[in-house]
């Protein structure tokens, strides 16, 4: 699948958002990944990177074909336990695409600054700030240094 071609329909976008809420559900004051409005971010990343695009399309297509989702209202109208069952079935039947799809959801979720605040992670690039650590203290070597050399002579 060529990059930049990952358009999904409005209906699929609703399904994607509902699925994202199940993959990463609400926690404390944060809503689920779908309700946070991250479906568009997933779509955008899937459009940039072919593997994610293919996984997204395969999962949405499979969900649309799931017998339980053919009922009126489709996947979004199912009860939560039915939705989870549908996803669990996909995880078993198409693990390669499902795994990549879950990675996609995790990537957009854990790229979000609201999530970073919640987990205590500093957003932004690692440089130039880096992290502070105390310098090496040789006193930690006291025990191991007492050991006689044991490297094998050859």
């Amino acid at each position: 699948m060529p990059d930049t071609e990952c358009k999904i329909s409005d209906a699929d976008r609703l399904v994607l958002s509902a699925v994202m809420d199940l993959i990463v559900p609400p926690v404390d004051d944060l809503p689920g990944a779908g309700e946070m409005g991250l479906a568009g971010n997933a779509e955008e990343l899937a459009g940039r990177i072919a593997d994610y695009g293919e996984a997204l399309h395969r999962v949405l297509e499979a969900l649309s074909l799931d017998p339980s989702a053919r009922a009126e209202g489709g996947f979004v109208a199912l009860e939560e336990d039915q939705r989870i069952a549908a996803l669990t079935a996909l995880e078993s039947s198409m693990p390669k695409y499902f795994d990549k799809f879950v990675d996609l959801i995790y990537i957009v979720y854990y790229s979000d600054e609201r999530v970073h605040r919640h987990i205590g992670w500093r957003s932004g690039p690692l440089q130039p700030l880096g992290w502070e650590l105390p310098p090496f203290d040789p006193s930690i070597l006291e025990t191991v240094s007492r050991r006689e050399p044991f490297w094998r002579k050859a």
């Binding site: 199940l22 993959i23 990463v24 559900p25 989870i84 996803l87 795994d99 879950v102 990675d103 959801i105 995790y106 990537i107 979720y109 854990y110 790229s111 999530v115 970073h116 987990i119 992670w121």
Partner: peptide, 18 residues
């Protein structure tokens, strides 16, 4: 970082769901 942790850094991916 958080993405590596969630997707599996040195061990498997964090499970999805509840």
């Amino acid at each position: 970082g958080p993405i590596s942790t969630a997707c599996g850094h040195m061990f498997g991916r964090v499970p999805w769901g509840a």
